[in-house]
Simulated assay, not measured.
Amino acid sequence: MPKVSNKGKQMPESPIRKLVPYADIAKKKGNKVYHLNIGQPDIKTPEVAMTAVKNANIEVLEYSHSAGFESYRNKLSQYYKSHGLPVEVADIIITTGGSEALLFAMGSTMDQGDEIIIPEPFYANYNGFSTASGVKVVPVISTIDTGFALPPIAAFEKLITAKTKAILICNPGNPTGYLYSKDEMLQLAELVKKHDLFLIADEVYREFAYDGYEHHSVMNLPGIEEHAIMIDSVSKRYSMCGARIGCIVSKNKEVMATAMKFAQARLSPPTFAQIASEAALETPQSYFDEVITEYRERRDTLVAELQKIEGVKVAVPKGAFYCIAQLPIDNADHFAQWLLESFDSNHETVMVAPAAGFYSTPGVGLNEVRIAYVLKKEDLIRSVQILKEALAQYNSK
């Protein structure tokens, strides 16, 4: 029988989606499942985006330009400039989600066997994108005890080899909610200059910063214009995960010309989704003000409730809408499956994402889970109540 590729065998399962069959079984039993496992906001997509698609008068659904609509890139450039980022139209290629932008970034800057340094825990699909690109992830560990702050630069420096091509950060972070300080960003800038590396910043949660903290973009770091690559997406900003529209942004003309070849190979990003994304740029600031207030309140509610459970440790997120919680258990994978397969509280249970899948170092994060606070506050309170009951029952077995 023909065999699948080694690359295919090495592709990691999604720690977020691999529990879906168990959730389906729980629902078939009549149990309600509170989904804390996936960053799918329940916030309404801006009406202006949905209206643009409904009103689109298209007789032939043609290919778009490989770099995306010029009108969209023009407006996107203006959007970035209004947020203090010096991004020109030529610096932008529209992609099918931030995922494709990351694949383009890796494909344009790294060869088979090259290395990329990533602070962990990190967005689980970075493992998948790296495997698909034949690139080796070299993790540098950040811990819950420091709130997942950037590890010391010396820890990065000792990992740099002749094969190292880039450092990748998620800012604010998924799964930690950590927001990099200006000083941390400047330290990374110095490091990539010194060792002639790329600094790839996944900034899809840029708007989601709390408590007066400010987001510092890779595109604003002086002196590393040729090193900086920004990844962005409409998924979280406008609650448009299903649109699958993102972009890769860089001042490095050779990188962008190379990324364009990958863009041409996949032909073009989807037309209707670009219409929605372009219209979404008209979303009023009041929308974001309300969304940020809502997420901050959800974060405060979730953290306060988790801190009431004995043996639970949680790092308070400064941005995005995730947190990592350390639970008084040995194996979060087993616990997450048990929650769906064997436990209910008045026919209700919760679905969490085991955090080990957000690390590439084996054996790390086994007792941690990622929780997305994308549900309304009363649902978060009920979810943590269920979690507390579940932990008591699980640990008494």
Score class of each variant (00 low, 15 high):
residue 9 K to F: 14
residue 11 M to Q: 14
residue 11 M to F: 08
residue 12 P to Q: 09
residue 13 E to Q: 12
residue 25 I to V: 05
residue 32 K to T: 13
residue 33 V to N: 12
residue 34 Y to C: 07
residue 37 N to D: 14
residue 47 E to V: 05
residue 48 V to K: 09
residue 56 A to N: 05
residue 60 V to Y: 15
residue 62 E to F: 01
residue 64 S to E: 10
residue 70 E to R: 08
residue 71 S to Y: 01
residue 75 K to E: 13
residue 80 Y to T: 00
residue 82 S to M: 10
residue 85 L to F: 06
residue 87 V to D: 01
residue 87 V to N: 09
residue 94 I to N: 02
residue 96 T to V: 13
residue 107 G to W: 00
residue 127 N to I: 02
residue 127 N to L: 09
residue 137 V to L: 11
residue 141 I to D: 10
residue 142 S to Q: 04
residue 144 I to Q: 14
residue 144 I to M: 14
residue 146 T to G: 09
residue 149 A to C: 08
residue 150 L to W: 04
residue 158 K to G: 01
residue 159 L to M: 12
residue 159 L to S: 00
residue 162 A to F: 08
residue 163 K to R: 14
residue 165 K to N: 12
residue 173 G to M: 03
residue 185 M to P: 00
residue 186 L to G: 05
residue 186 L to T: 03
residue 189 A to W: 07
residue 193 K to N: 11
residue 201 A to H: 00
residue 208 F to W: 05
residue 209 A to K: 06
residue 215 H to K: 12
residue 218 V to R: 11
residue 221 L to Q: 13
residue 228 A to W: 07
residue 229 I to H: 13
residue 229 I to C: 08
residue 229 I to Q: 12
residue 233 S to V: 03
residue 242 G to W: 14
residue 248 I to A: 05
residue 250 S to A: 07
residue 251 K to G: 01
residue 252 N to R: 08
residue 261 K to F: 02
residue 268 S to E: 08
residue 276 A to W: 08
residue 279 A to S: 13
residue 281 L to I: 07
residue 281 L to K: 12
residue 282 E to C: 05
residue 293 T to Q: 15
residue 309 I to T: 04
residue 310 E to G: 11
residue 313 K to Y: 09
residue 321 F to N: 05
residue 333 D to W: 00
residue 347 H to V: 00
residue 347 H to I: 05
residue 349 T to P: 03
residue 352 V to D: 01
residue 353 A to S: 15
residue 355 A to S: 12
residue 355 A to N: 15
residue 360 S to P: 00
residue 366 L to K: 14
residue 368 E to Q: 15
residue 370 R to M: 15
residue 374 V to A: 14
residue 375 L to P: 01
residue 385 Q to I: 06
residue 386 I to F: 08
residue 387 L to V: 06
residue 390 A to Y: 00
